[in-house]
Write a protein that binds this DNA or RNA. Structure first.
Length: 373
RNA sequence: GCUGGAAUCGUCUAGUGGCAAUGACAAGAGACUGUAAAUCUCUCGGCUUCGGCCUUCGUAGGUUCGAGUCCUACUUCCAGCA
């Protein structure tokens, strides 16, 4: 069982430490998205410097290239990428379901590679095998997303996710035995709760999965903050209190992080911060700014006054504006450092505020200012 | 000086007589939440009561119902010959 120490609880929120074979994660924590075994535009040295505690790679992408076998050959994900800290892998479910021409069956999902069109059948078992071979500390179960927002589609996807989860657990246990026998480190499995916006389905999903021997939970299928608090309240009051929960894919909007932490999520991952950065949209305490806008041409202040990131400590908005206008990669690098730091730091402050009892005040001040206008 | 060729939106560029006029870049703005995303979308002569109106294709004339497109002259640039 994955070791998760909880230092403090406040309502559904918790402050804790997840202990993985590759190191600890102080939660709540923002996990960097390193989909193709890299955080786009950043080195892992830079990720470390900006305070990132863990990264999440994607099974779908790594399955296609370079293949899990090669990553194993390179010593497993952490060694291969030289990130000497905790790692997660997403199951590939989300990506595969977002591809065109996916054929779903009880067995798995048949899809065509977005790279060369080659056909594959991804199953819960193959996802588990691939994730074990990749070797991240924490794996997500291979789940199914709904084809539409309709209740019947949501329910079907949830029920299949549950059936697949039992298969994931069986395969995970088999692989665990095999890998531990070789003297390799333990790897952990998170189930993924589905149910869309339907609270009764979320409840059913949480109850079903709470009874299963998984190490933690991913909360999936969340696309909007609308109703997220109620959904998380429902789910997190049912899930076992001593196991970590990861809010899948949320974190582009700071409000999601506050809501997530407040209602019982311990880790988050999101491609938003780095993608926004590459597209010139930078976080400030007053909301995002588009650094390419003409108004920043002569703005010689940092992106965020007082921000301790490499970008803000050394550079001005005018300089970033220039780098984006001439499309220099350094602009994307600095912007990514800033955005990633901004989000990591915000979640770290959420942790601190939970510890010292100032969470509600911090949340109010932050969100009122960030979403003013 | 002679002989050819060329002049179109900030730049380069398309343009059989019915064109406010092609495409690219630049410029301006927007989007992005388990990354097919260093991506995508919109605007880009002026005015507008959104129906239109006005001014545009080196300059000045002309032919024509109608000219960026044809004719004449001029100006500038390029090439070749002197």
């Amino acid at each position: 069982m994955l070791k998760f120490d909880i230092e403090k609880r406040e309502g559904l929120a918790r402050v804790g430490v997840i202990h993985t074979p590759h190191g600890d994660i102080k939660t709540p924590a923002f996990v960097g998205a390193s989909t193709r075994a890299t955080v786009k535009a950043l080195t892992f040295e830079q990720m470390r410097a900006l305070g990132s505690q863990a990264v999440l790679a994607n099974t779908y992408h790594l399955f296609l290239k370079p293949g899990s076998k090669l990553i194993r050959e390179g010593g497993g994900l952490a060694d291969f990428i030289a990130w000497h800290g905790p790692t997660f892998t997403d199951s590939g479910g989300f990506q595969i379901f977002s591809l065109p021409d996916v054929k779903l069956s009880e067995e798995g999902a048949t899809f065509k590679s977005h790279i060369d069109g080659q056909k594959f059948l991804m199953t819960p078992e193959l996802s588990m095998e691939t994730q074990w071979e990749i070797g991240a500390d924490i794996h997500m179960a291979f789940d199914q997303l709904a084809k539409s927002d309709s209740r019947s589609d949501m329910e079907q996807a949830m029920l299949r996710t549950h059936r697949w989860l039992t298969r994931c657990i069986d395969e995970h246990d088999r692989l665990e035995e095999e890998y531990l026998a070789k003297g390799l480190p333990e790897q952990y499995l998170f189930g993924v709760v589905q149910g869309g916006t339907f609270l009764d389905l979320r409840k059913e999903s949480a109850e079903f999965e709470a009874a299963l021997p998984v190490d933690g939970y991913g909360i999936g299928g969340v696309f909007t903050a609308d109703g997220m608090d109620e959904m998380l309240k429902t789910v997190c009051s049912i899930l076992p209190k001593d196991r970590p929960r990861h809010l899948l894919g949320m974190g582009q909007e700071p409000r999601d992080l506050f809501i997530g932490a407040e209602f019982g999520c311990d880790t988050f991952d999101c491609v938003g911060p780095t993608r926004m950065a590459r597209n010139g949209s930078l976080y400030t305490l007053d909301g995002r700014i588009n650094i390419k806008n003409a108004k920043f041409e002569h703005d010689f202040t940092p992106i965020v006054e007082g921000c301790d990131c490499e970008c803000c400590k050394n550079h001005t908005r005018a300089y970033l504006h220039h780098l984006f206008k001439v499309d220099e990669i350094t602009g994307k690098v600095l912007a990514s450092i800033h955005n990633e730091r901004f989000v990591v730091h915000t979640v770290d402050k959420i942790r601190d505020s939970l510890l010292d009892g100032s969470f509600q005040q911090y949340k109010k001040e932050f969100l009122e200012r960030y979403y003013a206008r």
